[in-house]
Computed example of a mutant assay.
Amino acid sequence: MIVEQNVPLQPYNSFGIVARAQHLVRIRDEADVAALLADARWHDTPKFVLGGGSNIVLTGDVKPLVLKVEIMGRRLIEDGPRATVVEVGAGEIWHDMVRWTLDQGWPGLENMGLIPGTVGGAPVQNIGAYGVELQDRFDSLDAIDLQTGETFTLDAAQCGFGYRDSVFKHAPGGPKDLGLAGRALITRVRLRLPKPWKPELGYLDLERKMAETGVAEPDARQIFDWVCAIRQNKLPDWRVLGNAGSFFKNPTVTAEQCADIIARDPKIVHYPMDDGSIKLAAGWLIDACGWKGKSVGNAGVYERQALVLVNRGGRTHPATGGEVMTLAKAIQTSVYERFGILLEPEPVVI
């Protein structure tokens, strides 16, 4: 185990924000965590777990000890009549893992192709796209308690999945609060791919692809290719134009609230949910407030998708975390003043 000092974090966050870690340890297996916690110098030090850095905004140098998760490995652990179960190291790139499952003939993750980040970060955010969320394909995960050093396993119910939410995003707050933010390091994730496979085609963009191509019954690989093409058309490549993907969650409102907004803004994009609530398109709300293409310093709103905030300064003159958050707060204020809705950011602000 080597503790690196004064480590640049610009290569490790998809926004490309300049910041440094005072101390950083690369976690390549469970033994690295055990060695770290056995060292009296670091046992009680505050820690920050870093995966792919695709869902964070750095607003300054990181003082907690950064644990850079680089645990690799992919393997099949079950191939039964009802499901295929695979186990993947937390440091694996999510998109590469999705493509690997398809290459092996194990469909089920194709709607979540090209989502940036690592496998270990996927449960934290309960990532999802085009009608499928991680919780729909989740089996269990292994993690290490960063206070006690004990290894534990969680199933889907114990992860407390919600819309872009999980126990890993909440701090412990009492005997009934099982929040694990800052306390757990995910090491391996197991995904359950159900059989028989059924395509998820309920999104408008996928319906358009079916109409354009004339393919009425696409296989998993075709859906994967469509999803990748759609995302590449709508969203900037973070390696070219720094960003953290969708910056705000799509808000949900009651049917009555939605009807009131529609009376004033009939074109608002909205989706009825199974529980009777209505999900509103945050990108539409932001665009309606005139933010598309606008900037604060070198932080801007992407011209093709108002839900994405970008780093216009590149790697040489990058946006600061302060500029990103100033822009985000201005957008929140505009949307609240016009629609009475407070947008909630998706990335973790550090």
Rank of each mutant, 00 (worst) to 15 (best):
residue 21 A to R: 07
residue 24 L to N: 03
residue 25 V to I: 14
residue 28 R to K: 12
residue 30 E to T: 14
residue 33 V to G: 07
residue 33 V to H: 09
residue 34 A to S: 15
residue 44 D to V: 01
residue 56 I to R: 00
residue 58 L to Q: 05
residue 66 V to E: 04
residue 69 V to L: 06
residue 72 M to S: 15
residue 79 D to P: 04
residue 82 R to K: 14
residue 83 A to M: 09
residue 83 A to N: 11
residue 84 T to W: 11
residue 85 V to N: 04
residue 87 E to S: 08
residue 88 V to C: 02
residue 94 W to C: 07
residue 111 N to C: 03
residue 113 G to C: 13
residue 114 L to M: 14
residue 118 T to L: 09
residue 120 G to D: 03
residue 123 P to T: 10
residue 126 N to C: 04
residue 128 G to A: 12
residue 129 A to C: 08
residue 129 A to L: 07
residue 133 E to K: 00
residue 141 L to S: 08
residue 142 D to R: 13
residue 151 T to M: 12
residue 156 A to C: 08
residue 159 C to F: 00
residue 159 C to T: 05
residue 164 R to M: 04
residue 173 G to L: 07
residue 189 V to F: 01
residue 195 K to I: 07
residue 197 W to A: 01
residue 198 K to A: 12
residue 209 K to F: 11
residue 213 T to P: 09
residue 221 R to S: 11
residue 226 W to K: 04
residue 233 N to E: 14
residue 235 L to G: 01
residue 240 V to Q: 15
residue 240 V to L: 13
residue 240 V to I: 15
residue 248 F to M: 12
residue 250 N to A: 08
residue 252 T to K: 15
residue 259 A to S: 14
residue 260 D to I: 13
residue 260 D to V: 14
residue 262 I to Q: 14
residue 262 I to F: 04
residue 263 A to G: 10
residue 268 I to V: 15
residue 271 Y to P: 02
residue 272 P to A: 03
residue 273 M to D: 14
residue 273 M to C: 12
residue 280 L to H: 05
residue 284 W to P: 00
residue 290 G to E: 00
residue 293 G to E: 02
residue 299 A to Q: 03
residue 308 V to G: 08
residue 309 L to Q: 01
residue 312 R to W: 00
residue 314 G to Q: 05
residue 316 T to S: 13
residue 326 T to W: 03
residue 326 T to H: 10
residue 327 L to Q: 04
residue 329 K to Y: 13
residue 339 F to A: 11
residue 341 I to T: 11
